[in-house]
Design a protein around this nucleic acid. Structure first.
Length: 1040
RNA sequence: GCCGAAGUGGCGGAACUGGCAGACGCGCACGACUCAAAAUCGUGUUCCCUUGCGGGAAUGAGGGUUCAAUUCCCUCCUUCGGCACCA
């Protein structure tokens, strides 16, 4: 093994000593106990102690600088040295390529970081350090998402100020980041709760407020341009706008104009449903409502309509969807965003009623002939108008109870559909049928038009509703699965029916004398013939599924609409008095449970029972009907989105104040030069008894006089924190700018973010909002790009060691980086965070596993410091030199590719193999030159991963400067080439022999060598090969 | 229910574009060192049969394509994540 020299680098003493800097203070878990204490078993002191055996600190401490690997002796001092020399300060734009590597904006919590959180901070740091060595200008910043409920609630509980808490918590995070050796540029630290920051959040709010989305160009434009256009020519061709002539516009009062404009603004105020806690008398966030009850009061939460602020993100739905194709993000995140946006194409169709037309949205206009009733959301404006006097009481009671129910209750009762009839009727525009209008809460007021046509034959929800309330079902789309059924009630068929079916191989089940027949698609016609022959004259049989018909002894009766229905019912009633009660054929059918799955399907099939459209193929049905509707003026093409506008109002203290003042003439935005609207310092910021923001109770804040003398009342809602985090990545480009949110050129240089890393929990919140703001800022000319994050990666979760649970304070299973670093040092922790598994994979923590990376680093340390060891006396061997050079360059290629491809676990494993190879070479006759090149490559490749170790070794070897200012070693492809390969020989796909052959062996040679192999001959047993497959440089497979 | 991801030794996990399954590490066993233990070093370690040589089976289950499947296709099971009446 490498010699353990006791000599110490002469430079060592010139450098930081362990007592210097913050070493002792920043490692609180590190006992300063003397050596004797440290060696005593301390199991009793820490019941759940990490295993002691691999513990470096068990080694005896010594005052003298030792060659033994003791990371605790130098890590903290190096961090202090690096910061003092501004090693990681981001430099201004220059000719180097840039790399912006960013972690999700963290909210600093009182619990600090766990080893699970380090899963993303360590790899992004490695990536940043790697890019610096590759000659990139790197921006790798950190800041605090400081506003929001957690801090506010914690502050209320601890009776302190949230700003003070954030100060404390973020300082702790910062301490932990330093322990870990993360190379953030702290000169760019930002805090979203500071006026210097939220001033610009308010500024962006104003940009949104002063802008509208022009549907003709699909871009945001200044609202002033809209005002000018309205004055000149009215609302004209602006789709979606409430019609307005130029004349009418100019006649409107200022307040009326403001109201009209608010239907365009990207930031607007509108009434909306909120969660209302009647005991605490406060509005709650959705997260604060658990199982329909307020989390603190336990009271049933009600819904209340209040004026709320929104951002009009729905205007950008199409662009947010389309641009997903241009970014390198995990596919599942893109899918989640697509589903969240929820685009669906369809048509809007008007149904006539006595109270005027009722408009519905449908994605299945091809099923219009199968609509048998309509359903309105309880909140629909037409409910009151339509409801007949007899139904009024019932409908109003139903609407009231629906209003009282929370969102959670509504969805909890998902399975069981409820509703009441309005007593009114509507006319289906395609065939003039009269159908009843119902009210039910399974129709949502916020989507489409809040009204639907119900097609129970082809919509699962409508089917369930129709079954419950006995509404008719009409099949109008042919089945694609071929399912066809018939139920032959005992006594309705003649003798020999079952026997005839058996002969024809039509399977059936017999229960209590009745036959349950599922007819194979190819036998349907044959079945009809047999049934017609066997049906008794006093009865009938029916076929359901791909065919809809009744079989009587004297002939078949197709069931394809209202007329045939009447004929069928009349005949059946004549034969069977029980049928008298039934009003529709479908009611007869769905009383037979066996038919249930044959009555309904939601596939796109050929149209049937649809007048002249019958027979239209399924692939073109929707398009043809939509065209026809438009031509006939019965409907229009229409796209709808599930996405709703982004509600930002919070009736809370700890957030960015919304910069608006309410006057008698309507709302007035605060002028840019008066920003920021400061959050006042107050003693009490608990939610008020009225449910208003606590800011509403502060007259000095609320009462304002505008420059023109108008008296006004300041908006007291604050913005939810997602507003703060929707632009912070821009602020990092220019964090101290006092004149602007960011300098345009700085933003254009650094952004978009090249690599963005964080958890998947923000897939549809932050990541959607940030994309939206970026697009608006682009449209308004502030940034030249439309997507903020070019590449995104989600780290997998780290579970508790049991592999089942997440780490959480309440379960007491949190492992902190502090304790691990005290034990093994930061470098071993960093290496283990990367080595533990593939980056995106969830995996359990195992502190034992750290012993592996620790041992590896120690071996590397010993080899690196013992440079003088080889070669032993004697001649060097060219073959060994070539082998060592080869693995050096292969490792370089592998590690570079792995870091860039986010495969940190295999990068570590390649470095471990490389270290092992150097260790083996150390005892052999290799030339000093090749050996030292290998060591240098190892040291430089370790620099991003184990920055402390690499720097300490660099220093002890008396090299100049910092290892972190060095270039990544150069790769030589020629040296990485293999000279020989192992050729695998197979017989019938099974490995029977292996040969070491020159790498460039020809296919012919390989084939000959394989057939000449003794073991191959043995396995052939004299048989002649039928085929020989040769894969060049890999294998030969002999097939007999 | 729908959408997405994933199932490989005792454990974490490797395996390029279909070409030697189990790299690397943990753990375990044996050996060296030690009075002893820890640490360290060395050897071995998928399972089954075999003293050995060697052979057979195996990547959630079943089937398919192929000279060859962890990898491609079909059916099913399990786990995790997301959405949840969006017409």
């Amino acid at each position: 093994m490498a010699t353990k020299k006791k000599t110490v680098s002469k430079k060592t003493s010139a450098r930081a000593t362990p007592s210097r800097g913050t070493a002792k203070r920043t490692t609180p878990a590190k006992p300063s106990a003397p050596a004797a204490r440290a060696r005593k078993p301390r199991a009793s002191a820490r019941p759940k102690a990490a295993p002691r055996r691999a513990t470096p600190r068990a080694a005896k401490a010594s005052k003298a600088r030792s060659t033994e690997y003791r990371p605790q002796e130098f890590e903290a001092a190096w961090m202090a040295t690096w910061e003092a020399s501004h090693l990681y300060k981001t430099t201004p734009a220059d000719e180097r390529p840039k790399a912006y590597i960013l972690d999700f904006f963290p909210y600093p919590s009182g619990d600090g970081l766990s080893v699970g959180h380090c899963r993303n901070y360590v790899p992004t740091d490695v990536l940043s350090r790697y890019h610096r060595m590759r000659g990139y200008n790197v921006l790798h910043p950190m800041g605090w998402d400081a506003f929001g409920l957690p801090a506010e609630n914690a502050a209320i509980k601890l009776k302190t100020n949230p700003a003070k808490l954030i100060e404390r918590f973020s300082a702790n995070y910062k301490r932990q980041f330093r322990l870990l050796g993360i190379s953030f540029d702290w000169d760019r630290e930002i805090n979203s709760s500071k006026p210097e920051y939220y001033r610009w959040t308010q500024w962006i709010f104003l940009q949104l407020y002063q802008a509208w989305f022009d549907p003709r160009t699909k871009r945001a434009r200044p609202i002033a341009e809209l005002e000018a256009e309205l004055a000149r020519r009215g609302s004209g061709d602006i789709s979606g706008a409430k019609p307005m002539t130029a004349e009418a516009w100019t006649r409107m009062t200022l307040a009326q104009q403001r109201e009209y404009l608010s239907t365009f603004r990207l930031a607007y105020r509108a009434p909306a449903e909120v969660n209302w806690d009647p005991v605490d008398k406060t509005v709650l966030a959705n997260e604060e409502v658990v199982d329909g009850r307020g989390w603190r009061s336990g009271a049933l939460v009600e819904r209340k309509r209040l004026m709320q602020w929104f951002f009009r993100i729905t205007a950008y739905a199409d662009r947010l969807l389309a641009d997903l194709d241009t970014i390198d993000w995990p596919e599942h995140i893109k899918t989640m965003q697509r589903n969240w946006i929820g685009r669906s194409e369809g048509a809007e169709v008007d149904f006539a009623t006595q109270a005027g037309p009722l408009r519905v949205f449908t994605t299945r206009p091809d099923t219009l002939w199968g609509a048998t009733f309509m359903v309105l959301a309880p909140e629909h404006a037409a409910v009151a108008r339509l409801t007949t006097p007899e139904q009024r009481a019932q409908v109003e009671a139903y609407a009231a109870s629906a209003r009282r129910m929370s969102e959670a209750d509504r969805t909890a009762a998902e399975k069981d559909k409820t509703g009441v009839s309005t007593g009114a009727y509507a006319v289906d525009p395609v065939d003039g049928r009269r159908i009843p209008v119902w009210v039910a809460d399974y129709v949502l007021s916020g989507y489409g038009t809040g009204a639907i046509m119900a097609v129970p034959g082809h919509d699962e929800r409508d089917f369930a509703f129709a079954l419950k309330y006995g509404l008719p079902i009409l099949p109008v789309i042919d089945r694609t699965d071929g399912l066809t059924k018939s139920f032959a009630l005992g006594g309705t068929m003649k003798e020999g029916f079952a026997e005839a079916l058996r002969r024809e191989a039509i399977p059936f089940e017999e229960r209590q004398g009745s036959l349950y027949i599922t007819i194979p698609p190819a036998k349907v016609e044959r079945y009809i013939e047999i049934a017609a022959q066997h049906v008794r004259p006093d009865s009938w049989n029916e076929v359901v599924g791909t065919r809809w018909l009744f079989i009587f002894a004297d002939g078949l009766q197709r069931w394809d609409g209202m007329e045939s229905e009447q004929r069928i019912l009349a005949r059946c009633q004549a034969l069977e008095p029980d049928v008298r009660g039934k009003r529709t054929v479908m009611e007869m059918l769905h009383s037979v449970e066996f038919y249930r799955d044959a009555l309904f399907h939601a596939e796109y099939g050929d149209m049937i029972h649809s007048g002249e459209f019958s027979g239209t193929p399924g692939e073109v049905a929707v398009a043809r009907v939509t065209q026809w509707l438009e031509r006939e003026g019965k409907g229009t093409r229409r796209v709808n989105y599930k996405l709703r506008d982004w509600g930002i109002s919070r009736q809370r203290y700890w957030g960015t104040p919304i910069p608006v003042v309410h006057t008698e003439q309507g709302e007035v935005p605060v002028r840019e030069e008066e920003l920021p609207v400061r959050l006042p310092d107050v003693d009490s910021y608990e939610p008020t008894a009225t449910g208003e923001s606590p800011l509403a109770t502060i007259p000095k804040f609320v009462n304002v006089t505008l420059p023109d003398g108008t008296r006004g009342r300041r908006e007291t809602d604050t913005m939810g924190t997602f507003a703060c985090s929707s632009w912070y990545f821009l602020r990092f480009a220019d964090p101290h700018n006092k004149e602007a949110a960011f300098d345009k050129e700085q933003a254009a240089y650094w952004l978009p973010v090249d690599m963005y890393v964080g958890g998947a929990e923000h897939a549809v919140m932050h990541l959607l909002y940030a994309r939206f703001w970026t697009k608006v800022l682009h449209d308004l000319g502030f940034v030249p790009f439309v997507e903020p994050f070019k590449r995104l990666r989600n780290q997998g979760m780290i579970l508790a060691p049991d592999g089942k649970e997440k780490m959480s304070k309440s379960k007491g299973n949190v492992i902190t980086p502090d304790e691990v670093i005290a034990e093994y040092g930061a470098d071993a922790l960093r290496a283990y965070e990367m080595f533990i598994s593939e980056f995106e994979q969830t995996t359990p923590w195992n502190t034992n596993g750290l012993a592996g990376t620790y041992r590896w680093l120690r071996r590397a340390w010993e080899l690196l410091l013992a440079r003088a060891t080889p070669p032993p006396a004697g001649e060097t061997t060219p073959a060994l030199d070539r082998d060592l050079a080869r693995i050096t360059h292969k490792t370089l290629r592998k590690v570079s590719g792995d870091i860039e491809g986010f495969r940190f676990n295999t990068a570590i494993s390649a470095l471990m193999e490389f270290t092992n190879a150097i260790g083996e070479a150390a005892g052999r006759p290799v030339s000093a030159e090749v050996y030292h090149q290998a060591l240098d490559a190892l040291l430089l490749m370790l620099a991003p991963i184990a920055p402390f170790l690499a720097e300490e070794v660099w220093h002890r070897l008396a090299r100049k400067g910092s290892v972190h200012q060095q270039r990544w070693p150069a790769f030589d492809a020629a040296l990485a080439v293999d000279e020989t390969v192992t050729l695998v020989l197979q017989v019938n796909g099974k490995v029977r022999d292996r040969l070491v052959v020159p790498a460039d062996i020809s296919e012919v040679q390989a084939r000959e060598m394989a057939l000449a192999s003794e073991s191959i001959k043995r396995w052939l047993e004299g048989r002649v090969p039928r085929q020989v497959v040769v894969v060049k440089g890999r294998l030969v497979n002999v097939v007999v």
